[in-house]
Amino acid sequence: MEQPQAGPLSPAYLSMSTSSFTEFLRAQSPDLLPGRRQLGDATSLQAPHGTTIVALTFSGGVAIAGDRRATAGNTIAARDLEKVYITDAYSAVGIAGTAGIALELVRLYAVELAHYEKIEGVALSLDGKANKLATMVRANLDVAMAGLAAVPMFVGYDTDAADPARAGRIISFDVTGGRYEERGGFHAIGSGSPYAKSALKKLYDPDADADAAVRTAVAALYDAADDDAATGGPDTVRRIYPQVVTITAEEGAVHVPEERIEAATEAVLDERRSAREARR
């Protein structure tokens, strides 16, 4: 393995024509690439799994949110895992599936986007970013076949879009690298996704503002946690709340501050409490 060192840059560094960091790794340090492992059957392996991610568009942007739980079999492996990552100024990725594989994927992906932008002087187009991620998911297929599947969901703000109010986009993937544009304006992945999606279906409003979208995302995750054991609900004792990233033209991709998520969670909980009171 060629580790970076203090000696002169090898001629390959100077002469390579690729703008892709993954291609560069493949030539220079292939052992750092994900998905190049010799695997047996890993289905019996209880590696930590991340679970539910939801995404929805709103007027002038897009939001993506994830719960914080990772499970290994029937135990909780992590309570405060971060599953939503900002990958560049206008995109973010949420991950579900085998945590180790997914974290490695998203880390390489963020470097890949920044690397391209630095080398070429311009960022990739939104579709370019999504296609790149699809290739990286496909490269992981062998590992997925062995039982360690990891699937991301991509959200981005398309700075080239004709209508800035509808420029938020959501793209989902399957383990074979299939890339699906979610034109409905919302989507969820992971074990709690059926419940989250049913909630989103009722609550989704394409003309909502960012705050309302954050609240909807939190509510959908609450519903997922309600029925899916692998999805973590809000933990008011440890003050662990879902993670939300919003992407807008003005601010780019930013993590929503914890106070705002806490407030949104409280609002959802109050709403549920009062609905229950009213039924009595």
Partner: peptide
């Protein structure tokens, strides 16, 4: 330009490893 690209490759590899 080739030195710049090589430098970016070097630091990105370092930061990733």
């Amino acid at each position: 330009e080739s030195l710049r690209r090589a430098g970016i490759r070097h630091v990105d590899l370092q930061g990733y490893a």
